[in-house]
Nucleic acid binder design. Structure first.
Lengths: 132, 132
DNA sequence: CGGCATCCCAGTCGATACTG
DNA sequence: CAGTATCGACTGGGATGCCG
């Protein structure tokens, strides 16, 4: 046992070539976070998502959804009507992940003030280098 | 209460201008994930981190650590000796986050096989358009 | 309305080499 | 050993326009 870390699944995200590493890369996107969180409370249409995720461009939204669909986290349903109607919802796997990501989001919202202060202090210090 | 989502802290990560949104952006990095996870079991030297995080370059490691330090998640301690010795450890806040990120990493490792299959299937389908 | 294609800038990352 | 500087490749991601 020369691996000093506690991965009980035989996969090791610290290794570049491990599949779990690429999964982590996929998750390391703020839009993935937000889309999954947004879909957590139920299926949404493309436009609803676009409105909910302030600042997302159609391109990024589509791109993010395609990735999530590809990885089996989101299911896409197309209604053959005019005007077109497309709905997205989390799969079982996506729901599962959504629980965790929502915790991260909650953590971010909860600690945002402290971190904002820390950043302000860091800037103040770096600007105070004149005290050298 | 026209906000339809459940943020009990007055911060809303869905809003571009909300501080929690920038916190989420900071967290949306695979190296942040891995560095925090790596430091979770105790303080480590720069070189130890570099060896543990396969594939990270000195530049990215330093950059990531600087961000984490700036945001108050990591504490940096310098020993004035030759050769230089620098150690990093999680702050209280960092420990707190580390718990969550470790869950994400565990999730990634746990579901890597399924997602790998989903990706393979997605590729197979897209290449199988000839079946139209 | 949903979403794909194109163009293009700008930030980011990796590789390498260098300094204290 | 820790960290920085430089450069080049890459791509994330914004804007626009067109199609079903």
């Amino acid at each position: 046992m020369d691996s000093d870390h506690d991965s009980p699944f035989g996969y090791d995200a610290f290794r570049r070539t491990c599949p779990s590493h690429t999964v982590l890369e996929m998750l390391a996107s703020k839009w993935v976070y937000l889309v999954v969180c947004a879909l957590r409370k139920g299926r949404l249409r493309n436009g609803e998502l676009a409105r909910k995720l302030e600042g997302i461009t159609p391109k990024m939204l589509a791109q993010t959804l395609r990735v999530l669909e590809r990885d089996g986290l989101v299911r896409r349903e197309v209604f053959p009507v005019i005007p077109p109607r497309v709905e997205y919802e989390l799969t079982e796997l996506g729901q599962n992940l959504g629980g965790l990501l929502t915790q991260i989001r909650a953590w971010a919202e909860q600690h945002a003030p402290v971190i904002k202060d820390a950043r302000a202090r860091a800037i103040a210090v770096s600007e105070g280098d004149w005290a050298a």
